[in-house]
Simulated assay, not measured.
Amino acid sequence: MTRTKTPPRDEFTAVPAIPRDSPGPVFGSPWQAAAFAMTLALHERGLFTWSEWVAHLSSAIRDAQAVRDPDRGDTYYECWLSALERIVTEKGYLTVDALLQRREAWNEAARRTPHGKPIELR
């Protein structure tokens, strides 16, 4: 029997202010669900502990609040993505340069993609 390292429900609910309803987290757009799923997959592979993740997410939220994030409910997953980028670069799984190159590749792909079509990296 294989056990995953998915956080127990009580640890999962400890994540700061996660948008959720009774069955679980809710997402405003597909990229938010992808960032969430990527975080869980990396955690399940043992790349970071859940307490490390919560600390990084809390820090990203505090940083956003420090620059007066209006927090209308639309920036939570921006903090989530920021925390994910921070944890993978701090642990050396990805360099900052590689992260910036990938971000630019996505931005370029988004610019050339017609509205309503899926973004594809070349």
Score class of each variant (00 low, 15 high):
35 A>T: 09
11 E>F: 01
111 R>L: 08
71 D>M: 02
43 H>W: 05
41 A>C: 02
95 T>Q: 13
97 D>R: 12
97 D>Q: 11
110 A>G: 03
42 L>M: 12
1 M>I: 14
45 R>Y: 07
12 F>W: 14
86 R>G: 05
16 P>A: 13
121 L>T: 05
38 M>G: 05
66 A>W: 15
84 L>R: 07
73 G>H: 03
29 S>Y: 01
10 D>R: 09
50 W>E: 04
97 D>T: 15
13 T>V: 14
18 I>S: 03
85 E>C: 13
120 E>R: 15
13 T>P: 01
17 A>V: 08
59 S>R: 14
117 K>I: 00
2 T>K: 06
98 A>H: 12
86 R>V: 04
83 A>N: 06
29 S>E: 13
58 S>V: 00
42 L>S: 00
97 D>H: 13
54 V>Q: 03
7 P>T: 04
11 E>Y: 00
111 R>N: 06
9 R>M: 09
108 E>F: 11
2 T>R: 01
44 E>P: 00
104 E>Q: 04
25 P>G: 04
13 T>R: 14
9 R>D: 12
106 W>Q: 10
2 T>A: 09
111 R>V: 02
31 W>L: 02
76 Y>R: 01
6 T>K: 13
92 G>K: 12
16 P>M: 03
59 S>E: 15
22 S>F: 11
20 R>A: 15
119 I>K: 01
18 I>Y: 01
100 L>A: 13
40 L>A: 08
23 P>A: 14
6 T>D: 12
24 G>L: 05
100 L>R: 10
22 S>N: 07
5 K>M: 04
83 A>R: 06
21 D>R: 14
20 R>F: 00
104 E>L: 01
7 P>M: 15
10 D>H: 03
102 R>L: 03
112 R>E: 15
85 E>F: 02
96 V>Q: 08
1 M>Q: 09
1 M>K: 11
74 D>N: 08
66 A>D: 15
58 S>Q: 10
53 W>F: 11
10 D>C: 03
102 R>H: 05
119 I>C: 00
119 I>G: 08
88 V>G: 02
19 P>K: 02
2 T>H: 09
30 P>Y: 10
81 L>D: 07
42 L>A: 10
116 G>P: 10
76 Y>D: 01
24 G>Y: 07
64 A>I: 04
82 S>D: 12
